[in-house]
Design a binder for these strands. Structure first.
Lengths: 152, 152
DNA sequence: GTTGAAAGTCGTGCCCA
DNA sequence: TGGGCACGACTTTCAAC
């Protein structure tokens, strides 16, 4: 899909505040509210904008422990298999196939160490997982929900 | 702050759709729109809800290359120093101090390999960085913007 | 792409239980 | 706390330009 820089600025506006009114966004990008709505509808239909979400403080909802787990998988494991498996764990907030020694990197978020260990156990129970290497997060320095190009 | 399970369900609603009206959320949690608004205002003021954002397809905006970079830092480097440095790079979408060999883990998102290399160079230019180890993301299996407890 | 008008919905402050 | 009401603003869909 073609995205011009007006679209970019609309996206940046929505990333900064997803509850902004179309009139408000229009003022920032010099467009009328109906014009903004049409562009947003088009961007949503095209899958560029996947949805709108609230950014929650993980600690406030009791999600205080995080880890990154490197996954080492059996020879003929496909990314799709890994994807299916990790999506079953609600503790998984991110998962990627990666270059290097490990086959995948899984980002876990849990209530506490015990919960984390429990999730890790379920992850290791997958038949294709040969071994794992965990790295506990000590503190969160940056955690942008999404970062998009230049603002207004 | 005290969060009851009505708050939890309101949060879950907003995470699922940040543009839902208060009346809509109220219908799901059996509350009137003003009551929902008051709770949301309170949650925002308390920092539980940090804001509302759009979930963007990174590929659609030209952000196609990702990497995780392990940072090895000089002896007396504080997390605050690392935080300041990584926040200066717009390519950083996440950064954490971690247990294990490395001191920090930085999640980068760039337009392409050249851009990634450029960002990495700027990261390595920090005086406290003694060395880095990069892991390129081959594919994104899961990338939840936020995951919160049980839905409605 | 724009404007302007229509009807319906929503946000939000205020008051009462 | 919660709900109800009221007013103004916003959304959304038209039409016509």
């Amino acid at each position: 899909m073609q995205i011009d820089d007006v679209d970019q600025r609309i996206i940046a506006s929505l990333v900064a505040d997803a509850r902004a009114s179309y009139a408000e966004i229009g003022a920032r990008v010099s467009l009328s509210a109906p014009a903004v709505k049409r562009r947003v509808d088009r961007l949503r239909a095209a899958g560029v904008i996947r949805g709108f979400t609230a950014v929650i403080d993980p600690a406030a909802v009791g999600w205080t422990t995080e880890a990154f787990v490197e996954l080492f998988c059996a020879g003929r494991t496909t990314p799709a298999q890994i994807a299916v498996a990790v999506r079953r764990l609600p503790e998984v907030v991110g998962a990627y196939t990666v270059s290097g020694e490990a086959d995948a990197l899984v980002h876990l978020r849990a209530a506490d160490i015990a919960h984390l260990e429990d999730a890790l156990e379920r992850l290791r129970a997958q038949p294709f997982v040969t071994s794992t290497r965990s790295t506990i997060v000590l503190s969160r320095l940056v955690d942008s929900p999404t970062v998009v190009a230049a603002p207004t």
